[in-house]
Design a binder for these strands. Structure first.
Lengths: 110, 110
DNA sequence: TTGACATATTCCTATATGAGAATATATTGA
DNA sequence: TCAATATATTCTCATATAGGAATATGTCAA
């Protein structure tokens, strides 16, 4: 079997760095494809393809306005990723605490 | 160009669902490869390969004990993913609030 | 040293990718 | 209808994957 499709879920879709960039660009405001192309340094067809993937998993929404397509991030679709990472939060906090305690112990010793 | 390597960063490594399962299994306790194999329903070589990817990006740590290799999740390596998703948190909260307000407005109307 | 157990690696294959190039489709205004 | 603008799709290619099968490596105990 090959790797899961980029469109299989949000995890796969955001694995591509360009797509994360796009999500950030579109987080607070709608933008046309051309605007995204100008912001990033990749060709228009690539941007359209990335947008298609993001739309396929619900990470962006699109709306036509005249000749333009206006895209914006659908932040709620990022929530499942956040929730998954959050299940580890308690653990890394604990880890950081131990690192800090260790450092203080070393300090006290000298 | 092809897709970025699974080992290129944590985002790519956790795109594979099996690897997320493994990270959860190893979150709170060390386990041997065989234990992971028994828990999941995939072959031992596949588990070893997934572990190699996870180790490559620092998501797990390994330690030998006799014939066994004991793996555990390194939770701190998940933090960058959490931080990235967190940049959208304010936005989806706002989105949820608007949905709620809309529902209440509809309720009051009838 | 040998056998048994535990894990890792190699080889294979079907499949999907991301970028670039070229082209197609959609929308508007004249 | 036609030209111009905006976006999407198709094609090609080099590359990497995940799993299965087979095998290699590592470690211990006798």
């Amino acid at each position: 079997m090959a790797r899961a499709a980029t469109t299989s879920d949000a995890f796969n879709a955001v694995a591509e760095p360009r797509r994360r960039d796009i999500l950030s660009y579109l987080a607070t405001e709608e933008r046309s494809v051309t605007e995204i192309v100008d912001l990033m340094e990749i060709e228009q067809p690539s941007v359209s393809k990335h947008l298609k993937v993001l739309k396929g998993v619900g990470l962006v929404e699109a709306r036509r306005e005249g000749r333009q397509m206006l895209y914006k991030t659908n932040p709620i679709a990022i929530r499942p990723l956040h929730e998954w990472t959050r299940t580890f939060e308690r653990l890394w906090r604990h880890q950081l605490l131990r690192i800090k305690e260790q450092a203080e112990a070393n300090n006290a010793q000298k």
